[in-house]
Design a protein around this nucleic acid. Sequence first.
DNA 1: AACTCGGGGAT
DNA 2: ATCCCAGAGTT
Length: 352
Amino acid sequence: MKSGFAAAIIEWQAQHGRHDLPWQREPVDPYCVWLSEMMLQQTQVVIVIPYFERFIACFPTIQKLATAQPDQVMALWSGLGYYRRAQYLHAAAKLIIDDYGGTMPDHVDGLMRLPGIGRSTAGAIVSLAWNRPAPMLDSNAKRVLCRHQAVSEDSGKILWQTAQDHVPCHDARAYTQGLMDLGSMICGARAPLCPNCPVGATCKAWNSNSIGDYPKRKSLRARKLVEVFWGVAVNSAHSCIWLQKRPLHGIWAGLWSFPDFSNEKESKRWLYEIGSPHRPVVQSYPAKDHKLTHRHLRIYPAVAKVNSGTGVGAFADEGWIHVADLANLALPAPVRVLCDELLGSVNTGCCG
DNA sequence: AACTCGGGGAT
DNA sequence: ATCCCAGAGTT
């Protein structure tokens, strides 16, 4: 259908929307659109751009990604969070090469069979990559549609139907991009700029002066405080630091971090072991608070400078890591920060 | 329906 | 401090 709503969004997007994002470069590459959608889940454009540029420079095609080492893929995701997304992306790339003849599915159902791609991401990819009609319902679209239709229910059924109903037959790319641009630039969560909105004339929330009621507030739950004790062994003479790979389930699955213990005594005991036969001086570092969506980590690093240990090139799942290799390792954000404080600049690298 | 899974920007 | 963000998968 061709509604006035869609037409207004499309026209507004052409005039005021974003046209210079890295994944919009012509000719539009479906793989780039897919990568961007994966990276953008639950985060923001300004955060993603440098990660996207590094990733696409290293893995410019699905083929390159499919044959990449998992550790290298994870390293390029290091700091971005929600690391399962990187594993899904990598697994999906392999599926496309091995089972799909190297061709990305170009329809919603096919895309949704790939790991990490849900209904919204599939719809975004179909419309943005191939300019074909498909509904998309990210948080921008949700907010715009909730307000425009004055929908207070949080159940997805109504909103998905609404999203489906508004998708235009033509210019699906501009429409989807326009919904996202509008949600981020005009119909924002905080202070919507309704007088500038291209669909304000038909917005039920705006016209009933009840913009603040939509979308419905999510009830937030208190973060649980979790105390973690890190054993941080540093060999300054060799510029290396001891890290181990985390378990494959739970927080920071498969990323490299410091050995963690449930109390300070255990972390210090471990430091004396790794430092033997010398007896390292263990100093307690200031606690670091790291807040996640539903946890509040209070990290107590115990730091010891030890003489044993040198950088090792071939490691299994733990060992001395040279400062130069940290750039190409998947480290959780607070781990990279602490490495940086102890050894100097440890930025995320590109390729090896 | 309720959880899990990160991190940082904006106010 | 609090809220939010181009969500998906599991239980």
